[in-house]
Amino acid sequence: MMKISQIIKELDLELISGEKGLDNETNGVYSGDLLSVVMASAKEKQIWLTVQTHINIVAIASLIDISAILIVEGMEVEEDTIEKSNELGIPIIRTNKTTYEISIELYKLGIN
């Protein structure tokens, strides 16, 4: 298990919102952009990698107890998404890297 705050530090990620959840722990990653598939397959405490940025991603993360949402490819995150993430304390973090590139880095860090 590793804290989200530590992953942000190690991989030089950008914290966008949801600071309250920085102590959330994770030991796995799920990647996907089709919301129903994510709902069915992502597991609790995983970090969710996606290009989706609208408010519904926070609802999904909250419903299935995702530890943090990692936005890839530097996508712009909408204002109401940020507000919801702050409200629920689910961190949204961001990288300019692709899903594949950041997945490798997460793996090397020991998240697998």
């Binding site: 952009d33 089709l34 919301l35 129903s36 598939v37 994510v38 709902m39 069915a40 996606t50 989706q52 609208h54 519904n56």
Partner: peptide
């Protein structure tokens, strides 16, 4: 485009 409409909604519910 928002990630909905994967065609998994009702199958997920049934499962």
């Amino acid at each position: 485009e928002l990630g909905f409409g994967a065609g998994m909604g009702l199958p997920n519910i049934k499962k």
